[in-house]
């Protein structure tokens, strides 16, 4: 039909602008996709100096750390990191799992509504605040109350302290993922079990957890990788002594703390600089591998229910 109001002025500019937008947006997307590679290459490039006279195996197996004489053994740091990280996961893992089950299957809707801000705030608190909390609260508790029970004398700056602080930090992270995982399980499944007369916990144990197992494991994996890279809070409470820790009441020196603590001095010795960049690379590799595996597991898990 013919209308008087028609405004059919052709504006090729609109279409041109659209094409232009597509181009620059695509460019930005490319930059972001390439970013992880750039980070990896940057670190590899900077740490290549170290490889000139040190072999990878030697550095990872050796525990001798004498920067002035060029001896870079990363073993103490790796072991410390493993101690702190796994201990943290042992603390946080069960709490998260049980809490998630409680929130998804047992609690009233209002409890979840109240807990959501709690989880969000815990996730939002900066790590340096966790560090202050650790120094002010956890360190004295460990040195005054916990260590004496086990007959140990310590300043409180120990692997255990680091692990406790770290555990609290990764709780919101793991908890959120597990809640999400549990929510993907079809309600009909647990209803079927309940209608057969099984108890609630029995249903959770036999049906829900069995189905969600891969998802829960990958949530833990993600938590582990998050914990592994956490720097400041751990650094503030863990003691930072270069040695291979033999118990949870000894101080440790995790990999991220090594980088953070020495950034000022490293400029003077090129190999030292290179060694720190190598530890960053090591950290990146470990974290990415954990992440990669866990995320793949989650994706495959979610596909199963779609």
């Amino acid at each position: 039909m013919i209308s008087l109001f028609s405004i059919q002025r052709m504006i090729p500019g609109r279409v041109k602008a659209d094409r232009f937008n597509r181009t620059w947006m695509f460019a930005w997307l490319l930059v972001i996709v390439v970013l992880p590679l750039a980070i990896a290459f940057g670190l590899i490039w900077k740490s290549s100096l170290l490889f000139e006279d040190h072999s990878l195996i030697e550095m990872i197996v050796s525990s001798e750390w004498k920067t002035l004489s060029g001896k870079f053994g990363f073993l103490p740091f790796i072991i410390s990191s493993l101690w702190v990280t796994f201990l943290a996961l042992i603390f946080a893992g069960p709490v998260c799992l049980f809490s998630a089950i409680y929130l998804t299957f047992y609690a009233k809707a209002i409890v979840l509504k109240m807990m959501q801000p709690v989880i969000d705030i815990l996730a939002g608190i900066p790590s340096v605040i966790y560090g202050v909390w650790g120094v002010v609260a956890i360190v004295p508790i460990v040195s005054k109350y916990v260590a004496p029970v086990f007959g140990v004398q310590t300043s409180g700056y120990t692997i255990l302290t680091g692990a406790v602080v770290l555990a609290v930090m990764i709780i919101p992270f793991i908890l959120n993922i597990i809640i999400e995982i549990l929510n993907t399980i079809p309600k009909e499944l647990s209803e079927a079990s309940l209608s057969l007369g099984a108890g609630k916990w029995y249903t959770v144990k036999q049906v829900v957890l069995r189905k969600a197992f891969p998802g829960v494991v990958s949530a833990m994996g993600l938590g582990l990788s998050r914990a592994f890279g956490e720097t400041i809070a751990v650094l503030m409470v863990v003691g930072n002594v270069v040695h291979i820790p033999k118990g949870i009441f000894q101080p440790g020196y995790p990999l991220p703390a090594l980088i953070a603590n020495n950034y000022g001095e490293m400029m003077s010795i090129p190999q030292y600089d290179s060694a720190l960049m190598f530890s960053a690379l090591l950290l990146l590799t470990i974290v990415l591998v954990f992440n990669l595996v866990s995320r793949f597991m989650i994706i495959r898990y979610e596909e199963k229910f779609r």
């Binding site: 972001i32 996709v33 970013l35 992880p36 750039a38 980070i39 940057g42 670190l43 490039w45 900077k46 993600l222 990788s225 998050r226 592994f228 890279g229 956490e230 720097t231 991220p256 980088i259 953070a260 950034y263 720190l276 960049m277 960053a280 950290l283 990146l284 974290v287 990415l288 992440n291 990669l292 995320r295 994706i299």
Partner: peptide
């Protein structure tokens, strides 16, 4: 997926990378 991986990269690594840059 790549963005999720990037999110997992520890901030100290960003620091080291940023310093290099």
């Amino acid at each position: 997926f790549i963005l999720d991986l990037l999110w997992g990269v520890p901030s100290i690594v960003y620091g080291a990378f940023g310093f290099t840059l």
